[in-house]
Design a protein around this nucleic acid. Structure first.
Lengths: 213, 213
DNA sequence: CCGAGATCGTACCGATCGGTTCGATCTTTT
DNA sequence: AAAAGATCGAACCGATCGGTACGATCTCGG
């Protein structure tokens, strides 16, 4: 032991407060998220993960209890983060629901082009684990997307907003799968065109434009 | 050792031929496929898998070399089987491309309702493993779907058949993801409606019906 | 200045994993 | 009848896994 000391995730500890109870947890989550996303939940062991993110196993286990606990917390945080990210893109797109929908797929399209893109982390996780909590996080995640898309569908005056929203959700998740496993080039734009076509069809043949509100 | 003997996967050996060289391999694949699909590729060990399907580890390893070898062979066989299954549904739907497209999603919809449905096995596998061979099988699988849908798009006289086919592929994979993780009820029909709407839009605004041969 | 507590690195644990080996049994071939 | 070869069950192997324990270090509250 000639080099102990200097701990806490390599981050300088702010002089105030009690070494931060929640901060360590948040820092672990932030550092572990991209590693677990790239390597896969079962593609890396706790020991290697800890070494990569610079935290001891004891600290990780005290904050998350088990590896599954870490995974669940990570997925939950990631779901909330990307949902908020997409919602902000919609909010920034103005009042026209067509622009809002286009913003969704433009945002996704940028993500697809990212070299680290490996598909939806929540869907990937649910696809490989039977853990009920993981599946629940994924279902909730899709629910968030559905809510966002339902709002767009309603504002667009779709005849059946829940139906259109679910169809758009399929397009979102399908574009993500196709981009991950069959090439990302152009996928965002192709999906955007399809989404706008669906919206036009739903608004045109159904309830027309300018839904009450 | 009071009960050795009586081997070969519990299947009665036909009296002719050399105990079947290929037959054992096919039988292992057939038996292992649903187990690996339900439990997940990493969710079951080779020992338990062998016990469940009634084959010894030595036999399995002689036929497939490694667990990854078994996985690849299984995914390859499954991809060919389900692609053929979908192609046959299309072929049985008559000459109208709209009927053919509807048949695709009706067929998928039935699959979604199956209690053992857990999403697309190839996509699930690629989502959890970095193994290049697995990712290749998945890419090829999506390519088969794309070929099928391209044929439909061409026969429908779409203005841009490759574009429409890729959008329909997103719908297929998206419906599969949504059915797996957000409830299967109605997903097939909802996706079918969306697909037909996309086809109408692509044919209507683009090249009209009866695309040139 | 001294205890409480968070963190570190390392060693350790039992379980499980993928994969190999071996003796015995049964079938087919020669 | 004897050789060849496929299969079985079980034992075995080294590696890795998730998780725990321990002694040491550092910070903070009192």
């Amino acid at each position: 032991m000639d080099r102990t000391g200097r701990y806490h995730l390599g981050m300088p500890v702010p002089k105030g407060s009690t070494i931060d109870p929640e901060r360590t947890r948040a820092a672990i989550l932030k550092a572990a998220t991209p590693v677990l996303y790239e390597r896969g939940l079962d593609g890396i062991g706790v020991a290697e993960l800890c070494a990569l993110i610079g935290v001891s196993k004891e600290t990780l286990y005290r904050h998350f209890g088990t590896k599954d606990g870490l995974v669940e917390a990570m997925l939950q945080a990631r779901s909330e983060r990307v949902s908020r990210w997409l919602a902000e893109a919609v909010a920034a797109a103005g009042d026209d629901p067509r622009d809002q929908l286009a913003a969704v797929f433009d945002t996704l399209g940028e993500w697809y082009e990212d070299p680290v893109f490996r598909g939806c982390a929540m869907v990937n996780a649910a696809a490989q684990h039977h853990i009920e909590a993981v599946r629940a996080v994924t279902a909730r995640h899709l629910g968030r997307y559905l809510d966002l898309l339902t709002g767009v569908a309603e504002r667009a005056g779709a005849a059946d907003p829940p139906l259109l929203a679910r169809q758009l959700l399929m397009l979102v998740e399908g574009a993500t799968v196709v981009a991950a496993h069959h090439g990302a080039a152009g996928t965002g734009e192709q999906a955007r065109q399809a989404a706008l076509a669906l919206l036009s069809a739903a608004a045109g043949s159904g309830g027309g434009r300018g839904g009450g509100g």
